[in-house]
């Protein structure tokens, strides 16, 4: 009996099972390159790219929020819209209140529309990088520091940044950066 074929096939099966899992990080890479789903990048580490010939170009940025699964908390942007120049470092805050009678942990998930613009909106500091523990009734203003990359395609003049707030108190996560959590799993 020739066992080469079944052995080869078994290897293929195991490989494809692994490949299924490999699709997870591959998808992340794919998202980062294409801005698929409006996913934003992680924390921006480098210098702010100064505006070159783009200098003075203004774009409008809308801030919208959602609360997942009927979360009754108060969660609103303190500024709903701003006009800013590309390459300009700006700051805004979001107000959140835990209306539960117990302490809870929230996680905000960002998404940008049009998706094509996602990779040009760089967050230097963001409450979405951390899980947000809140005491019962506690409210706080959570900061967001960002700039729009001057390389933003010319036809885009309005961006929408959405944050969806999830209550993750009951799902105990080891890490805080949502992008890192997945890597821990793998």
């Amino acid at each position: 009996m020739n066992l080469k074929t079944p052995k080869g096939l078994t290897v293929l099966v195991v490989f494809m099972f692994g490949f299924g899992f490999m699709l997870v990080p591959l998808y992340d890479v794919f998202c980062e390159i294409t801005g698929l789903n409006g996913k934003t990048n992680g924390q921006y580490q480098g210098e702010i790219t100064p505006a070159g010939s783009e200098k003075g170009r203004q774009v409008t940025l809308q801030f919208v929020v959602n609360k997942n699964d009927n979360l009754p908390w108060e969660f609103e942007p303190n500024q709903t819209e701003m006009t800013l120049a590309v390459g300009e470092r700006r700051e805004t805050t979001y107000r959140v209140t835990n209306t539960y009678k117990t302490a809870a942990i929230a996680q905000a998930v960002p998404s940008v529309s049009p998706a094509e613009a996602a990779e040009y909106l760089n967050k230097i500091e963001c409450f979405c990088f951390e899980q947000q523990p809140l005491e019962a009734g506690e409210h706080k203003d959570m900061p967001l520091v960002f700039f729009v990359d001057p390389k933003l395609p010319a036809h885009i003049n309005k961006l929408t940044l959405s944050y969806t707030l999830f209550d993750i108190t009951n799902s105990k996560k080891p890490a805080s950066d949502p992008h890192k959590v997945k890597k821990v799993v793998n």
């Binding site: 998808y27 789903n37 998930v109 969806t164 996560k173 959590v181 997945k182």
Partner: peptide, 23 residues
Amino acid sequence: ATSFFSAAGGGDPVLFQHIFWFF
């Protein structure tokens, strides 16, 4: 308590559809 397909933990429900339809 992993979050492959839940946005709350850094996952993505659309990822499910990609893997599912790859099969």
